[in-house]
């Protein structure tokens, strides 16, 4: 099964003629993902290594029937691209673009949420379901097929944890990077809910970082609503208050939002928290070992 992307995924790539868009669209296709169309306004009729390019998402939908949009459009135009995908009836939008203004995302979020559209990102590495589909920039070679669901706010840290799991012989059902911006389309809880319902996923690992209160909310959700075991790792214990560490979202204000507060909330709800990526992977391995 896996979540969000799988064998049934048909991707339209918005911004396919850009350098990054083209590079990753081709990588995703080489992985076996059905990349059925690209959209770049003004370049309709062209093709990118055999993938037809359309002027609009509506035109791409009419011709190629995609169900997922991957957005690589530059930040000033990215919100418009998401609105366009939703207008054309796309159900799942995965937005890789970083640097989108927060107020743009506020409007996008408020518009799509009541319509039931699933948005992953922005400023995220995308979603990989090993052996099935890869939509985004996650280096698939680091991961392997299995039953651990991985959800994270970070990019390279996600790869780090996946790598640690793979080295311990533990594969993954899906890897979801939800992004680190102040407004992201899907929260930890949204993704945990999908993992809980997914038959292939047996254990979940949640990788958080300083800022906001999403990890704390997720801790309560795990305790009250999930039967599957969950492990967590939180980055940013050494981050001083009031400093921004690269991710717009990773801002500490006052005492809430610190790594310490998040780890405590998770432990208080019975979630094991690794002190570093290696230990977090070992905690997953211990649960997986006990289950077999």
């Amino acid at each position: 099964m896996a979540i969000i992307v799988d064998e049934r995924t048909r991707v339209v790539v918005q911004g396919i003629t850009g350098r990054e868009g083209q590079f990753h669209a081709m990588r995703n296709r080489a992985y076996g993902t059905a990349v059925v169309a690209g959209v770049t306004p003004g370049k309709g009729g062209a093709d990118v290594e055999g993938v037809p390019v359309f002027d609009s998402v509506r035109a791409a939908v009419a011709e190629t029937n995609p169900n997922t949009a991957m957005v690589f459009v530059p930040a000033p135009f990215a919100a418009d691209a998401i609105f366009e995908a939703v207008d054309a009836g796309i159900e799942t939008v995965i937005c890789i673009t970083e640097g989108i203004p927060a107020h743009d995302m506020l409007r996008v979020y408020s518009h799509i949420r009541p319509r039931g559209v699933r948005l992953i990102g922005p400023n995220c590495p995308g979603v990989l379901s090993p052996g099935k589909a890869n939509v985004g920039i996650i280096p698939a070679e680091i991961f392997s097929e299995g039953s651990v669901g991985l959800v994270s706010r970070s990019g390279t840290l996600t790869y780090q944890i996946g790598h640690e799991l793979t080295q311990l012989g533990i594969g993954q059902s899906s890897i979801v990077g939800i992004g680190g911006d102040p407004v992201v389309g899907s929260s930890f809880i949204d993704i945990l809910q999908l993992f809980e319902a997914d038959r292939e996923t047996e254990i979940v690992i949640m990788v958080g970082e300083i800022g906001g209160a999403e990890e704390e909310k997720a801790a309560a959700f795990i305790a009250e609503r999930m039967a599957k075991p969950a492990v967590s790792y939180i980055a940013g214990f050494s981050a001083p208050p009031g400093k921004t560490m690269g991710h717009a979202g990773a801002i500490i204000s006052g005492t809430s939002g610190t790594a310490q507060a998040k780890a405590e909330a998770l432990r208080a709800h019975g979630v094991q928290v690794g002190a570093n990526p290696t230990e977090a992977a070992q905690l997953v391995a211990a649960i997986a070992g006990a289950a077999t």
Binding site: G155, L157, G180, V207, A235, M245, G246, A250, A275, N276
Partner: peptide, 26 residues
């Protein structure tokens, strides 16, 4: 390092090893 999350995690392991990070640089 490369990536904000990974660098933040690196600050933490430097702290766990008994050092004090002088900066965050991504």
């Amino acid at each position: 390092g490369n990536g904000a999350g990974l660098v933040m995690s690196t600050l933490d392991v430097v702290g766990q090893a008994g050092g004090r990070p002088a900066n965050f640089c991504d």
